[in-house]
């Protein structure tokens, strides 16, 4: 899963705090989808981009 950046894989200081927290929540949710998915070959799990609230 691509993170947001090397110094903040699970955050983004450029976002306003509520949007950053929402993004982090989606990141962890996506990670949970990844660990419940059967993997057969290298697979990238992107966090689906949604409009920053």
């Amino acid at each position: 899963m691509p993170g947001r950046g090397i110094p903040y894989p699970a955050g983004d200081p450029d976002l306003p705090p509520p949007a950053e927290q929402a993004w982090r929540r989606r990141l962890v949710q996506r990670a949970l989808e990844a660990v419940t998915t059967a993997i057969e070959r290298p697979t990238i799990f992107d966090v689906r981009e949604e409009a920053h609230a």
Binding site: P7, Y8, P9, A10, G11, D12, P13, R24, R25, L27
Partner: peptide, 14 residues
């Protein structure tokens, strides 16, 4: 940025 909010590295809050 990590030290301003360490959840940015270990996402405990979420």
């Amino acid at each position: 940025a990590a030290n301003a909010d360490p959840n940015r590295v270990l996402p405990l809050d979420a």
